[in-house]
Computed example of a mutant assay.
Amino acid sequence: MSNIQIHLFPCLSDNYGILVHDPDSGRTASIDTPDGEEIARQCAAKGWALTEIWNTHWHPDHTGGNMGLKDRFGVQIYGPGRIEGRIPGIDSKLGEGDTFDFGAHPVRVMETPGHTTEHIVFYLEAAGACFVGDTLFTLGCGRLFEGTPEQMWDSFGKILSLPEDTELYCAHEYTLSNAKFALSVDGDLSDLQDAVATYEAMRERGEPTVPTTVAVERKTNPFWLAGNAEELGRRRALKDAT
């Protein structure tokens, strides 16, 4: 098992900044750049030298700190290459199936259109983590600004086919608002009820509800369950039998 470290912190109004650090190589990645100054402060507090940025998509609350951090630290910027000119300062243009090394650890790229047409996610198997941007949220998914429902469904399938213990690092704290919708459509599911109670307690303690896991989202995310009538029926049958 690797000793990769992941540091998550709140910034802006409801974003999360995420730093990924490999002690063996000394490399540190920022997943998107919602707030360049806060990212720099967090790196300094951890004693980590920022070496790269992994952009999931072009929205300004994900790329707004790119150029400031690049000018300041000379970082390498990895991001989606499907649409030209959208990722400030991009050096490495990536698409479905591409890989690159983070120290001794491969990072696999998956294209996950839906929220935007060029959205990608980064799967770092050595850390048991996937950085999913705005494709999937705890109990929800990103708004379809550019893509189609069919694209988002396929994107969900890619992410939720990863090992069940994979931690999914999404980019916003939207869980309690997502929970209201989830309960309105699947409120009879005990897995969902239990998850929402847990998340409410976490937020009362000021704790983040990120990351979630593949296993949890497969059982509770209404957008995944909506396309799995057989699984949804099985869960409701189990509830009725108890």
Rank of each mutant, 00 (worst) to 15 (best):
Arg27Met: 14
Leu183Arg: 13
Leu124Asn: 01
Cys170Gly: 07
Asn3Arg: 14
Gln76Gly: 03
Thr117Pro: 03
Ile31Ala: 04
Leu232Met: 13
Asp188Thr: 12
His59Ile: 15
Pro208Arg: 01
Phe102Tyr: 03
Asp24Gln: 14
Gly17Pro: 12
Cys11Val: 12
Arg41Thr: 13
Ala29Pro: 14
Asp134Phe: 07
Ser161Gly: 06
Ser184Thr: 06
Glu118Cys: 09
Val214Glu: 00
Trp224Pro: 11
Trp54Phe: 04
Asp188Gly: 08
Gln193Phe: 14
Ala226Thr: 08
Lys70Leu: 09
Ile39Tyr: 06
Phe156His: 03
Ala29Tyr: 14
Thr148Ser: 08
Arg82Cys: 06
Cys141Lys: 04
Ile18Val: 03
Gly133Ile: 10
Arg203Asn: 05
Met1Asn: 00
Thr56Tyr: 04
Val214Ala: 01
Tyr78Leu: 12
Glu167Ala: 14
Thr51Phe: 04
Asp165Met: 11
Glu111Val: 07
Gln42Glu: 14
His172Asp: 13
Leu176Arg: 02
Phe223Leu: 05
Glu52Val: 09
Trp58Gly: 11
Arg203Asp: 03
Tyr174His: 06
Val214Pro: 01
Gly74Gln: 04
Asp188Asn: 11
Thr242Glu: 08
Thr51Trp: 04
Gly142Gln: 00
His105Glu: 06
Gln193Arg: 15
Met67Gln: 15
Pro163Met: 08
Leu136Tyr: 01
Asp240Asn: 11
Ala45Val: 05
Thr213Gln: 00
Thr138Arg: 13
Lys70Tyr: 07
Ile83Asn: 00
His105Gln: 07
Arg143Lys: 12
His7Glu: 12
Lys93Ala: 15
His59Arg: 12
Glu37Lys: 12
Lys158Asn: 00
Glu118Lys: 09
Asp240Glu: 14
Pro23Arg: 09
Ala182Thr: 10
Phe102Pro: 04
Glu150Ile: 09
Glu96Lys: 07
Leu192Ile: 14
Ile53Asp: 02
Arg27Val: 08
Val196Cys: 14
Gly17Trp: 15
Asn3Phe: 08
Thr112Phe: 00
Tyr123Trp: 03
Tyr174Ala: 04
